[in-house]
């Protein structure tokens, strides 16, 4: 399987503070990948490194088989929508499209024009006067009309209202369906990712806590409720992500690929949000890679 984005021991230091350290991950091609993690986990730094806005202080990163830098040919293959979807507030929507056409040799003006029309944006309107949702759509249009192989989006919907958020993600899904582009989407809002992502990477404090296809993750995580149990008595193939105990009852969040045979457990299905929250709130002392299959990278 080919990786569109691969990092090995990747680190970025600002003066004395490491914004990202020893990050190792591989993001498969042809997927819509959700990159989740709490604020400060290094998501933005990772994406900036991937698009060449930053250069690594340690380790290496490969994007589409090459090192991201300011080489125009490489830049043309990666579309990027930055956090808060920056646009030039004094320029009109039409100016932005002309900007894209001037700066990108692979510019698809038909795609850009029809998208703007479809969104109902007035080409003569200044970008500064657009609503947050419209601005995000404009930024997305700029990123996809250059016809990239990989689209990186940094918290594109974080500041949007629920309706604009849904419209944005819908637009994104249409693009994916039509052009088969690989997407990496960072967010700290799991609900957004659940709707669009088929692969998930959880990043906590620079480390990959969990990576896998959404369907597999949902199938292999379970919530077990039953009489109070000592964790040491669990089968080896069950990895406890989190556990809560009352005097008489234990509630365990576990990962296992094997069926759960113990009849004393009530097994509940979990949502993607449950999984993300469980891994994000996992004790800081837990090292990734200790349990079986943690951080699956296929």
């Amino acid at each position: 399987m080919t990786a569109v984005l691969q990092a090995r021991g990747l680190g970025k230091r600002y003066r004395r503070r490491w914004a990202l350290s020893e990050c190792t991950l591989a993001i498969p091609a042809g997927r819509v990948v959700g990159l989740v993690g709490p604020n400060g986990a290094g998501k933005t730094t990772l994406l900036h490194l991937a698009v060449g806005l930053l250069s690594p202080s340690a380790g290496a990163i490969e994007v589409l088989g090459g090192q991201p830098d300011s080489d125009p040919r490489h830049l043309g293959r990666v579309g990027f929508v930055a956090q808060e979807t920056p646009t030039y507030s004094a320029l009109t929507v039409a100016d932005h499209l002309r900007l894209g056409a001037h700066l990108n040799p692979g510019w698809d003006s038909q795609l850009a024009g029809s998208r703007i029309e479809q969104l109902g944006l007035d080409p003569a309107q200044r970008a500064g006067k657009l609503s947050g949702g419209q601005r995000a759509q404009l930024a997305l249009t700029l990123a996809i009309a250059k016809r990239p192989e990989l689209l990186l989006l940094d918290e594109p919907v974080a500041s949007l209202d629920p309706l604009a958020r849904r419209e944005f993600l819908q637009g994104l899904m249409e693009v994916v369906a039509e052009h088969g582009v690989s997407v990496v989407l960072s967010s700290h809002l799991v609900a957004d990712l659940e709707r669009v992502c088929d692969h998930l990477v959880i990043l906590v404090a620079s480390r990959v806590r969990l990576a896998g296809d959404v369907d597999d993750l949902l199938a292999s995580h379970h919530l077990l409720i039953g009489p109070r149990r000592d964790l040491a008595t669990l089968p080896d193939n069950q990895q406890v992500i989190s556990a809560r105990h009352t005097d008489r009852q234990s509630t365990l969040f576990i990962r296992t690929d094997a069926p759960i045979l113990d009849p004393s457990w009530t097994v509940e299905q979990v949502s993607l949000e449950d999984i993300v929250l469980a891994y994000m709130s996992q004790a800081a002392g837990t090292r990734p890679g200790r349990g079986p299959g943690l951080g699956v990278q296929r």
Partner: peptide, 17 residues
């Protein structure tokens, strides 16, 4: 300051140009 460098520098044009 306004963050638009993230837009400008990720088009298919090198920063030098």
């Amino acid at each position: 300051e306004s963050g638009t460098y993230r837009l400008a520098w990720t088009q298919s044009v090198s920063r030098t140009r």
